[in-house]
Design a protein around this nucleic acid. Structure first.
Lengths: 199, 199
DNA sequence: CCTACCGATCGGTAGG
DNA sequence: CCTACCGATCGGTAGG
């Protein structure tokens, strides 16, 4: 009954806030994620919620971090056991497609939406988003290079070029899914990946 | 000196508002385009501005329409004189790349940003955006079909699949340009288009 | 974790 | 096209 909770309870409350925050932000955007709305959703006061973060920007950064954790769990981790190089690359692409197809975030790919919203701004939120995407792109490029070195892809493969094109396939998939709920779009994406990586 | 202006002046004011509105919306989003800010930018009162439209939603619809006009002028029209089929398709893709590369809208592709912002909502603004993109996609698919029928592309070309992949190239280009101001991204896009359409 | 506030800004209206 | 206003909501703070 006391308003002061233990550190464990505070951590739990924090993770409940972030869980909800990620879902709201994926639909309404990181700016449309308002403290008042989030607090009302969770049945707490604005100041109670804000106490966990201190400012909206810190909340946004924590939300980006949480979303990154979800992406790693739903995509990267699904390919962890797979042999590095082309098999791993294929597994990553399939996990990526599946992540979009299943609608892991209710508003589509969290990071695609975040880029569209923050690409013109400056500050730590933009940098956090760009940083996460940079890590993901480097992971992909690395697996492409491994595959090329192992002779699983043509020796003269331009890793950055191939990554650029794979990324485009996923952006096109997200676009189609969001715009016209096109259920066959995922198959188009799979066909494009197959063409890019060989059968 | 009188506050009442002629119909001609009103039309002119309206187009000045929309011109500015498109640029602001491409950066801040269609929701971030606020009446107060736009009015201040243009040195007029909120109610004076709102009088031209009646509501924010009508303003947003007019802004989407204006942006569509810019896209048609900067992309579609550039290929008007080119022979239909593969040559026209190539010209459209090059104009599309150039439009992104030149940064026709200060905030990157207006429609890509609008989709990210409105894909989860319902209402006329979402439908207007989806409608414009639908027309553009049909134009592309039509030229692909012409090219395939003329033997300029393989006979068994899947027009929707190829359109999906071309669209992905442009989304990837926009993504790279916005995220890391990558100047070579346009060349990656050109290489990808060449691979998709043949030399 | 709360109530009770703050100034700023939102979309929109009344009335001229 | 304006001034003057409306209620609602924004991020954030004071004080407990």
């Amino acid at each position: 009954m006391s308003p002061r909770r233990s550190a464990t309870e505070a951590r739990n409350t924090r993770s409940v806030i972030l869980d909800r925050g990620v879902r709201v932000a994926s639909v309404e955007g990181l700016e449309g994620l308002t403290i008042g709305r989030l607090a009302t959703d969770l049945g707490m006061s604005k100041s109670g919620l804000l106490g966990h973060f201190g400012s909206k920007e810190v909340l946004q950064l924590a939300v980006v971090d949480t979303a990154a954790g979800v992406f790693v769990h739903e995509v990267s981790d699904r390919a962890t056991g797979v042999e590095p190089g082309l098999p791993r690359l294929r597994a990553l692409c399939e996990a990526w497609i599946s992540y979009l197809e299943r609608g892991v975030f209710p508003g589509g790919c969290f990071f695609t939406a975040a880029v569209a919203e923050f690409d013109d701004r400056e500050g730590p939120v933009r940098e956090a988003v760009a940083g996460m995407i940079g890590v993901w792109r480097r992971d992909l490029t690395f697996q492409i290079r491994l595959a090329a070195n192992a002779g699983q892809l043509p020796e003269d493969t331009d890793a950055d070029q191939l990554m650029f094109e794979l990324y485009g396939v996923m952006l096109s998939l997200n676009h189609s899914l969001r715009l016209d709920r096109d259920r066959v779009a995922a198959d188009r994406a799979r066909r494009a990946v197959t063409r890019l990586l060989g059968v």
